[in-house]
Design a binder for these strands. Structure first.
Lengths: 121, 121
DNA sequence: CCCATATCTGCATGCATATGCAGATGTGTA
DNA sequence: TACACATCTGCATATGCATGCAGATATGGG
């Protein structure tokens, strides 16, 4: 099998893994720094079980790494740059959607780049 | 509904749209320049009907644009930069996969950046 | 040991997507 | 008009993922 096809599969796996609103918000939350499951759950207003379910595949694909401290599991982005990379994708979001929201995309994008990240290396 | 959630939805839609090996190869093919459906089908060794099916959602989300010339429909990337952006994602592909292929990721990545693109601007 | 907390894993249902194929649409040519 | 070519659209089946919930595991305190 040609390498080109292998690459496209791995890339597709990665994209599929990221292609969920909750997981994107989760990654955005981790951009602000290390967080435990309950804290993420509270920030995203979702049950902790759901967060754990989302974290499992992200952990398997090394998108996030975890560290245990007592009963809590702290998660962080393996590649902090992935958050910035995701924001760049807004460039390619359909124009109709941008205008439909009644707000400039730059404003919306600011929501993802604000909040003083701790680990933005 | 908070804008942050809206953004995560749109972004997830985009990622889901791209998260298919054939569509990624299709985009990579278009990076080389404008192509008609049959030419893409031949390059990817897939039936033209399948290519058309993949192009439909890409067209709907303005990832690609089309131009008709006689019986042929020529497609091109709306944002040529999306191809380079996708290549950057290889940075985040699980390390185990990289080593498992027995080849340096840089070599594989070269497959996606070679071939003298016409519209890489 | 018993219990509460924090998180993980497994399972069932429902929904979305991929695929293959048939048929429709549009275009060029005789 | 008839026909071939290029592409699109619609439909049926199968597969995969999301969700919600129950139960399992691990840790800390009494």
């Amino acid at each position: 099998m040609p390498s080109r096809i292998i690459v496209s599969r791995e890339l597709a796996d990665l994209l599929r893994l990221l292609a969920h609103p909750d997981r994107l918000r989760l990654i955005e939350e981790l951009r602000l720094g290390e967080r435990d499951v309950s804290t993420i759950a509270a920030a995203l207003d979702l049950p902790a079980t759901r967060i754990s379910q989302h974290l499992a595949p992200l952990r398997a694909h090394r998108i996030v790494e975890d560290r245990r401290e007592g009963r809590n599991h702290f998660y962080r982005l393996t590649h902090p740059g992935i958050a910035a990379w995701l924001v760049e994708a807004l460039e390619f979001v359909e124009v109709r959607n941008r205008l439909g929201e009644g707000a400039h995309i730059e404003k919306v994008r600011a929501l993802w780049t604000a909040d003083a990240p701790e680990n933005q290396g």
